[in-house]
């Protein structure tokens, strides 16, 4: 407990996926981040929470290089962002990003969307293999197989998110960025999405950087949670650790009515229900049911 809720996150040890130091982001006079530091380990699911306007999405954008920070350094998978990679190895091969609305290319079918990063990075890949991988990722992300040939405008919101996830997984990334993946989904679809991410995490060994407002998601799948407030990451830790913090926003967030409800439902589930099906053969157990 003592290290978790402390203002200074634990020192970055060896298996670091993302290391942010002294990040400053400004829009005109408005400072969004002021000396933000964060460390994410490889193989963990890190949830990022914070009130509206605290710059969660801006944080993600500055990690993946879409927003140039005013100050500070960002290191992703051992490479400094903003500097040319030493051996021409493109860091973008090793991550996948799911934007809030899916951000699918609207003139391409879902499977073609998946093929876009593959074509970009592996121009010699045969059309047969591209089609196969397209269908594979569509199936992995839990979409029905006939969705592969559909255009984004023909998909529902939940299916768009899954299709966006399929594209994010196209290059078999080590690191996955998810921006509010369950926002706007019904509870059943949201739970399905949570399970899917958890399973992909376990099966593929992904590290996941997860921005969310969904308390159930936080309780269900996150290893650690980082709290954004006062232009900084004020605490990083597991939820029980965070709940011991006396920061008012953290208290409101986790111990408020919704936070308690999410916690209670989690406790009921772990007490009463039999242990969730362990590992085994997780992914084909729900071929696209909840979309």
């Amino acid at each position: 407990m003592n290290q978790s809720a402390a203002a200074h996150p634990a020192p970055c040890d060896e298996d670091v996926a993302i290391r942010i130091e002294g990040l400053v982001n400004r829009f005109g006079d408005h400072t969004v981040h002021d000396g933000l530091s964060l460390c994410m380990r490889q193989g963990e699911i890190l949830g990022v929470v914070g009130g509206s306007g605290t710059g969660k999405s801006v944080l993600m954008r500055s990690i993946i290089g879409l927003q140039k920070p005013a100050e500070g350094t960002v290191e992703v998978l051992g490479e400094m962002m903003g500097e040319p990679a030493p051996d021409g190895d493109d860091i973008r091969r090793r991550w996948g990003v799911l934007f809030q609305g899916g951000a699918l290319f609207s003139t391409l079918t879902v499977a073609e969307n998946v093929a876009v990063p593959l074509r970009e990075f592996y121009p010699r890949m045969s059309e047969d293999l591209l089609a196969e991988i397209g269908c594979l990722k569509v199936a992995l992300s839990g979409l029905p197989e006939d969705a592969a040939a559909k255009y984004p405008s023909e998909l529902s919101g939940g299916m768009k998110k899954r299709a966006g996830l399929a594209r994010a997984l196209a290059l078999d990334p080590q690191l996955l960025f998810l921006d509010e993946p369950t926002a706007g989904l019904d509870p059943i679809a949201a739970a399905g999405f949570d399970r899917l991410i958890k399973e992909l995490h376990e099966t593929l060994g992904l590290s996941v950087f997860l921005i969310t407002h969904d308390l159930d998601t936080l309780h269900e799948i996150c290893d650690r949670v980082a709290v954004l407030a006062d232009k900084k990451v004020i605490a990083v830790g597991t939820i029980p650790e965070l709940m011991k913090s006396d920061h008012p926003w953290i208290q409101d967030y986790f111990a408020g009515p919704r936070g308690r409800a999410a916690l209670a439902s989690r406790e009921i589930k772990t007490d009463a229900a039999p242990a969730r099906p362990a590992a085994g053969n997780p992914i084909d157990s729900h071929p696209g049911g909840e979309a």
């Binding site: 079918t109 499977a111 073609e112 093929a115 089609a131 196969e132 397209g134 269908c135 594979l136 569509v138 199936a139 992995l140 197989e145 006939d146 592969a148 040939a149 099966t203 593929l204 060994g205 590992a279 053969n281 997780p282 992914i283 084909d284 071929p287």
Partner: peptide
Amino acid sequence: EGAQRLIAAVNSCDDHVAIVP
């Protein structure tokens, strides 16, 4: 074990689905 897990994960995929209408 890892490979088994991955193969199990991918075997639900049908590669004969058309990817364009």
